[in-house]
Design a protein around this nucleic acid. Structure first.
Length: 434
RNA sequence: GUGCCCGUAGCUUAGUGGUAAAGCUCCGCUCUGUGGCAGCGGCGAGGUGGGUUCGAUCCCCAUCGGGCACCCCA
């Protein structure tokens, strides 16, 4: 009875918070692989790493991401400080990077500034596979300089190379232009006029958005709206010459890079700040249920929305969890964990004590050594070494302590040899090389 | 935030209104100076809280967590 109570108490331990996940050691090889690939790519293309704080003033996102967006309206974690400021856990990187760009005078450095980040973001959503309340993003920003379409292409290039280098198959790139402040208002008007004729028949969400954010109607997936959506005026026919030639150049650069794409004139994204290029990357087949794993676009007006001077910018973000889920869905082999090669086995208390410094000596020689010091039986230690796939075991017992020697045993061939302790590092290195 | 489905050891699963079984894993022993195999043994569970009942893991409710759809997005 009493025993049962204890058990109950233990199983009553707190669970992790909804939508938040532990990334366990077994998962780390995937994370290492993905983040390393992302980092190497970004560095190669001349991006410098910037890690803004997770916590920002909430109004940064209200102004930047957009007070009208779902992300800010219903998904942002906000909190009030003791001093009365309202802060938010970042729901995305872009506004933070823009803020940092101004705050630290990066506009006075060579332009454009190419910046990348890797870290967590937070959105209060209904969790599902591939949708978390804490997720990690690989983020790219090209800020400043001219609004050169070559950077739109380069950002897209990096995300698609990321997918390729990770051996993700069946990648689908969709892109669109949503115009600039000259042509977009005209298109919005046309869209509103078009929908006004049928607004009784569209869904309530669409009816509501028709006034404030009509472009979002293109994003509606409801059946009742589908017939009207299909006949919607094509934005690509309506954008101005400057915008269409900008898009055309982006496409030419992508062609040059042999990156295939689909123009999707109904692609619209959730943030308010986009202008011209918008894009999304997803996969087809296994993993497609996760939706897009990367997306982004151009946001030449964002800096002004934040209260700064007009500064062109283009960027995007890839979801690390989604990429890993896609890799698993496509049955990629888990990345091999590069493990240590040498396992030290002690026999007896004296040897255990002395082995501490044997390990230290090897560490100073750059040899990674594992052990199971908490285990006493030699058998158990050997078993562990074997199970974990070590090639070389070092056996250190009474006799060896006395002789100042150590046994080097090859666990594959079961051949072993006793060497003087002072020659250990040299002998191990010799064996590791072959 | 809404609707629906789900919740038994670390994992995969079984079974039952009378408090639960197995495989794998893990730990140990056979074997206190030599691993892989084998044999034996051990740890370990019905998310949580209530209700109904003589009695609940099973039925009901709530809550937490997961999943699907919507919405949105990475």
């Amino acid at each position: 009875m009493a025993e049962k109570k204890t058990k109950k108490k233990q199983s009553g331990l707190p669970q992790s918070v909804r939508g938040m996940h532990d990334i366990l050691p077994a998962e780390q090889p995937w994370w290492d692989k993905v983040t390393r690939t992302a980092r190497d790519l970004a560095e190669f293309y001349g991006f410098g790493r910037i890690e803004p704080p997770i916590l920002e003033r909430a109004d940064l996102f209200e102004k930047g991401t957009g007070a009208e967006t779902d992300i800010v309206q219903k998904e942002m974690y906000t909190l009030r400080t003791r001093g009365g400021d309202t802060l938010a856990l970042r729901p995305e990187f872009t506004p933070s990077v823009m803020r940092a760009y101004v705050e630290h005078g990066l506009s006075r450095l060579g332009q454009p500034q190419k910046l990348y980040s890797i870290g967590p973001i937070f959105r209060h959503e209904a969790p599902q596979l591939g949708r978390f309340r804490q997720a990690h993003q690989f983020n790219l920003e090209v800020v400043g300089g001219q609004n050169d379409p070559v950077y739109d292409a380069q950002v897209i290039l990096i995300f698609s190379r990321l997918a390729e280098e990770l051996r993700i198959r069946d990648i689908a790139l969709r892109l669109n232009s949503i115009g600039c402040k000259v042509c977009r208002p005209l298109y919005r008007k046309q869209l509103q006029n078009y929908y006004k004729r049928v607004d009784r028949k569209i869904c309530s969400d669409c009816a509501r958005r028709l006034k404030g954010n009509p472009l979002r109607l293109l994003d509606c997936k409801r059946e009742e709206c589908a017939p009207y959506k299909a006949k919607t005026p094509n934005i690509l026919d309506k954008i101005c010459v400057t915008c269409s030639s900008h898009l055309k150049q982006v496409l030419e650069y992508l062609d040059e890079l042999k990156i295939s794409y689909t123009l999707d004139n109904q692609l619209v994204r959730g943030m308010d700040y986009y202008s011209r290029t918008v894009f999304e990357l997803a996969v087809e087949g296994p993993g497609s249920e996760l939706g897009s794993f990367a997306g982004g676009g151009r946001y030449d007006y964002l800096m002004e929305m934040l209260g700064g001077r007009a500064t062109p910018a283009v960027g995007g973000a890839a979801g690390l969890e989604r990429i890993i889920l896609i890799l698993k869905a496509q049955e990629a082999k888990p990345p091999i964990k590069s493990h240590k090669k040498v396992f030290l086995i002690h026999v007896g208390e004296t040897a255990k004590k002395k082995s501490l410094n044997v390990i230290e000596d090897l560490r100073l020689e750059g040899i990674q050594v594992a052990e199971s010091l908490g285990r006493e039986s030699m058998k158990a230690q050997l078993k562990t070494a074997d199970k974990e796939g070590f090639e070389i075991a070092l056996i250190f017992g009474q006799q060896e302590v006395f002789e100042k020697s150590i046994i080097i045993r090859n666990l594959r061939t079961s051949l072993q040899e006793t060497v003087p302790l002072e020659r250990l590092a040299i002998e191990v290195k010799k064996r590791l090389r072959s």
